[in-house]
Amino acid sequence: MKFRVIWKKAGAVFLLFGILVIWELAVNWTDTPAWLLPAPSDIFSEAQASYPDFFGHVLSTIYLTLLGFLIGSSVGFLLAVILHILPKIRDTFYPILILSQNVPIIVLAPLLIIWLGFGILPKIIVIGLVCFFPVAIAALDGLKNTSSELKHYLNMMGATKYQLFWKLELPHALPSLFSGLKISATYSVMGAVISEWLGAKTGVGVYMTLASSSFRTDRVFVAIFTIMLLSLLFFFVIVIVERIFTKWHTKGVDKSESKH
């Protein structure tokens, strides 16, 4: 019983650790050269060594990620609200939302630079394009799928459209909105790195390009692990905010789980 609880809480950490151990042993055993695949221990010591230089890159990526995420998800959310309020427009716009995700970012990004230059704007657009979609779709679904029973009650009580939105639809959409935000938060780090590949002075993406063009595979892995860590961190920040805003939701779920 106790073992199961520990496994549930820390299972992922054990698993990750196990993979790293196997990786380390395999690299040592097969004598793989470091430029092909460095051992985790090499990556770790490289991270320590280049930390003073690398940290500036990380900070600038975090800044870009946060800015892009905030703008992208705000746009996504506002778009969802507008489309929800104007259902006639929704049916026209929904396919365009989906199409926006079919534009390959890798192709679009250089174009954006041609159009908009090397400033921060094209970068924000790239991240925003990645971030807005999960938020918009999740919020739209959350706003639309309110319980008909609650809606009926509020209508019978003479609630206005405005009251219906603020007292019913918006709070009902929160859990769904947060699911969207979690996806966006995870993607936004990747979005930031991609946008940095295309002409930035600092950032994990820049560091990564330099490292791979000089065959410093260990540094590439430092960057990869940093991106993973940032995504994870960002995800958990959203989870914590979600817990604060949807206390009722987690409480209800806890109860129904304990019943089974």
Binding site: E149, Y153, N155, M156, M157, G158, W248, H249
Partner: peptide
């Protein structure tokens, strides 16, 4: 004309994200 009666439906229809007190005050 709406909003002239107070209503209690068959299902309690309480808003799950509101506390009991806030639900009571909704009407």
């Amino acid at each position: 004309k709406r909003g002239l009666i107070s209503y209690m439906p068959q299902q309690p229809s309480l808003l799950p994200w509101r506390t009991v007190l806030d639900n009571v005050l909704l009407g």
